Computed example of a mutant assay.
Amino acid sequence: MSTLQRITEIEEEIAKTQKNKATEYHIGRLKARMSQLKQELLTQTAKKQGGSGIGFDVQKTGHARVGLVGFPSVGKSSILVKLTAARSAVAEYEFTTLTAIPGTIFYKDTKIQLVDLPGIIEGAKDNRGKGRQVIATARTSDLLLIVLDATKSLDMKRKIEHELEGFGMRLNKRIPQIKLVKRERGGISLQANTELKFLNEALVTSILAEYKIFNADINVQQADATVDELIDVIEGNRVYMPALYVVNKIDSITIEELDLLNELPNWVPISCKQGWNMDELLEKIWLKLGMIRIYTRPRGGAPDLQEPVILRKRRGPTTVECFCESIHKDLILKMKSAIVWGRSTKHLGQRVGKQHVLSDEDVVTIMTL
């Protein structure tokens, strides 16, 4: 039996197994086996293609990269042409784009690379239609725009998510607050700062056994941590990425249907053909990337409002320390204090420390020792 057949068999068994307390250990172990088989499938494909670097060769430029992903003929190339100066073939038939085509968005003093990827098809995670190349390049993005066709079933959203999930991508999901430390002896120790809803020591031990891990400390910091999140931490190769669902061709649907789309989180309805809502798309890209502009001001001089330092909110707040590190790694060691003008301060020219949280368009002077 091939690896793909074994994965399908396990998926079917999970689907037909009733979910209750009595079956949670069985389902947990099945999920662990399936995850290992999927990783094995990725390795097999990489070897056939001559290595693990199977994405399209697109040099990353600008302050952030945004990937355009979707099934064929949904309007990805049209979005690229509308938002950048890049040229990409646009046609009414499928598979117009056969390789990755980059362009640059100039917005709020930042340069954002937008990459139009070939349309993926069902089975992309199993390498149908250059699927692995497309998804491997998508994994290098800082944000994904998942493009859907408003005139077709929005069930396509679930299908694309399934393909991306199968390649280790987690869209709009938090990084699990679970720490795993392997040890040489002592068995499995599960620690938590709160009562766990879905995990317990016996279940965790059984899942770890599937990975031949018999001695480890597991520390869980979230009450609702799931089996799937535990498996993700064990595998250790997941990518947690923000995503926007861009619904194109809204000029072809009713007002009632459009109202429903407007109520959904992380959705942006647009019409490339009519040029509708493109400004909102740009603003949501900016917000989702979490970028802020910080302008520098030399001591006793005027602020430089032409070339801001671009910072991105990643796993925590953007502080003065982050600002210093983005300029030079040794600057924070020389810093005595900072003077900040902008929305993050209580008054103009406020003297702050390295943990002060900055806001977009703040002006900063670093006072050194």
Rank of each mutant, 00 (worst) to 15 (best):
E9L: 14
I10V: 10
I10E: 07
E12W: 11
E12V: 13
A15P: 03
N20M: 01
K21S: 07
E24G: 04
Y25N: 12
H26G: 05
A32E: 12
G50V: 15
G51H: 03
D57Q: 07
V66F: 00
G67F: 02
L68Y: 11
G75W: 07
G75M: 12
L80G: 03
V81F: 02
K82A: 15
A86G: 04
R87F: 10
A89L: 15
E94T: 14
F95V: 15
T99H: 14
A100T: 00
A100N: 00
P102W: 01
Y107A: 07
K108A: 13
D109Q: 14
T110Y: 07
T110Q: 15
Q113K: 08
Q113M: 10
E122S: 10
G129A: 00
G131D: 01
R132N: 11
S141I: 01
L145D: 12
L148F: 11
A150N: 03
T151R: 15
K159A: 13
I160L: 00
H162P: 06
L164R: 08
E165G: 11
F167I: 06
P176F: 05
K179N: 13
R183H: 13
S189G: 12
F198T: 08
E201G: 08
I207W: 04
A209P: 03
Y211N: 00
K212L: 14
F214R: 12
F214G: 09
D217T: 04
N219L: 14
A225Q: 06
V233S: 05
V233H: 02
I234G: 02
I234K: 06
G236A: 08
L244G: 09
L244C: 06
L244A: 04
V246P: 02
K249G: 02
I253K: 07
E256R: 09
N262W: 04
P269K: 04
I270V: 14
K288W: 01
K288Q: 10
M291H: 04
R293C: 11
P298Q: 05
P298E: 00
G300Q: 12
G301Y: 06
G301T: 07
Q306M: 05
E307S: 14
T318H: 01
V320R: 02
V320A: 02
F323S: 11
C324L: 15
S326V: 08
M335R: 01
S337L: 00
A338Y: 03
A338H: 02
I339G: 01
W341T: 09
G342Y: 03
G342L: 02
R343I: 08
H356Y: 01
L358V: 09
V363P: 04
